[in-house]
Amino acid sequence: MYSKQEMIKVAKLYYELGLTQKQIAEQLSYSRPTISRILEAAMKSGIVEVNIRYSLDSVDYLSKQLQQRFDLKKAFVAPVFVNKADLIMADVGKALANYLYDICQENDILGVSWGKTLTCVADHLQPKKVPSMQIVQLNGGVAQNSFATGSMTILEHFSKNFDADAHLLYAPTIVDSEEIAHVLMTDSNLQRVIALGKKANIAVFGIGRPSYDSVLYQAGYFKEDSYQTLLKKGAVGDICSRYYKIDGSLVDQNLNKRTIGLQLDELQQKEHAIAIAVGTEKAQAVLGALRGKFLSTLFVDEYLAKEIIHLDQAMK
């Protein structure tokens, strides 16, 4: 293991003075491979941080195709520079975070869902003080087991970056029966938060797909047999924990009545209904959402955009 002093010295010579590894090796009487290993150790320890600066421009021809084909207000297609899921998600999430910075203003009500992609958006938000704005959770996020849905953390990130009040929908997203959902909905605080979600002029949500890796399954909302039943009924995607088919119709009315939060048709009334999805495996989920007209603005990656267009063409 190399000392902190060694790592700092070599890092300064290499990154600040611009010396080559060979020159540093000669100056310090080390071998060149040793200098390389010291630089690697400096990066792993956090002494050196790499920040790659680049503009995120949409892939224009794919954006136009999506907008025209699905009558969207806006479509942003992030280019894929390196085919790694985490890097792609980071670029799409950053693009949406930048867009929110541009459009959010005084007296807006911003509704947010939760999930992996929304966590990524929250992580890339830029501070913008809009104290008269309100942030509201669109669907319940209390897990049925010890798994954390991340809903509270996401809401806190949005609230902190916009310097705005946050309203948590403190309830499970899916309950066991319609009767339980009805009882929960008599709670005045839940009624207030859901009413605020309906009033929101901006809604931001991820598009999920039925998968055993999904947050909804991992959070304990489904047993394996009930999840299989959902798939057999034709579920291709979910928005705000509500499942739909490839044509945009709801999969199961009983399940929908047991779900706490915003209804899918209420998204159609929003000034900005902004969806985000990453990965070609989401193609059917996004296409179903587009056909259901649950969104007016879409943020996706280049590979997913091509797959959505291809799938729509094939099905027609």
Rank of each mutant, 00 (worst) to 15 (best):
His167Thr: 03
Val286Gly: 01
Val175Asp: 08
Ala42Lys: 02
Asn189Pro: 02
Asp60Gly: 00
His272Met: 08
Asn254Glu: 15
Ser132Gln: 12
Ile174Met: 06
Asn145Tyr: 09
Glu281Tyr: 04
Leu267Ser: 02
Leu250Glu: 10
Lys9Val: 01
Ala75Glu: 07
Ala166His: 02
Glu49Met: 08
Val130Tyr: 07
Pro172Val: 01
Ala25Arg: 01
Gln105Phe: 03
Leu56His: 07
Ile274Asn: 06
His124Pro: 02
Glu307Gly: 08
Leu155Ile: 14
Ala305Leu: 05
Lys270Met: 10
Lys84Trp: 09
Leu72Asp: 07
Gln65Leu: 15
Ser296Tyr: 12
Ile8Ser: 04
Ile207Asn: 04
Ile52Tyr: 14
Lys4Trp: 04
Gln269Ile: 05
Thr119Pro: 02
Glu6Phe: 02
Gln313Trp: 12
Thr153Ala: 15
Ala78Lys: 01
Ala171Lys: 00
Ala41Asp: 12
Tyr14Asn: 13
Ile246Phe: 11
Ser177Gly: 09
Phe294Leu: 11
Ser241Cys: 14
Ala219Asp: 13
Lys257Phe: 12
Asp225Leu: 09
Asp91Thr: 11
Lys73Ile: 11
Asn254Gln: 10
Ala85Gln: 11
Thr119Lys: 15
Gly237Ile: 06
Tyr99His: 14
Gln68Met: 14
Leu168His: 06
Ile239Asp: 03
Thr149His: 09
Leu304His: 05
Ile135Glu: 05
Ser241Arg: 08
Leu138Arg: 03
Thr186Ser: 14
Ser45Cys: 09
Ile207Tyr: 03
Lys128Ala: 11
Arg258Leu: 05
Arg32His: 05
Arg209His: 09
Asp123Phe: 05
Gly261Phe: 10
Lys74Phe: 15
Asp71Ser: 15
Thr297Tyr: 01
Ser58Glu: 06
Thr117Gly: 00
Val82Arg: 13
Phe162Thr: 01
Ser159Cys: 13
Asp108Asn: 15
Met185Lys: 11
Ile202Ser: 01
Arg209Gln: 04
Glu307His: 07
His124Leu: 05
Tyr244Gln: 01
Asp252Gln: 05
Ile47Ala: 12
Pro210Phe: 00
Phe70His: 09
Ala90Cys: 04
Gly18Arg: 05
Asp301Gln: 03
Ser3Met: 06
Leu62Phe: 09
Tyr30Phe: 13
His272Val: 01
Lys73Asp: 14
Ser63Thr: 10
His310Ile: 08
Ile109Ser: 05
Asp213Gly: 13
Ser214Pro: 03
Met133Trp: 02
Ile180Arg: 11
Asp301Met: 00
Gly115Tyr: 13
Leu295Thr: 07
Gln218Tyr: 00
Lys257Val: 00
Ser188Ile: 15
Thr259Asp: 04
Ser36Trp: 06
Asp312Met: 01
Tyr101Val: 08
Leu87Phe: 07
Ala289Glu: 08
Lys129Pro: 01
Ile52Thr: 07
Tyr15Ala: 12
Gln137Arg: 06
Lys293Asn: 04
Ile239His: 04
Lys223Cys: 04
Val136Gly: 07
Gln134Ser: 14
Asn161Glu: 15
Ser226Arg: 09
Lys199Arg: 15
Val215Pro: 05
Phe222Ser: 03
Asp247Tyr: 10
Asn98Lys: 04
Asp247His: 07
Gly18Asn: 10
Tyr54Val: 02
Met152Tyr: 13
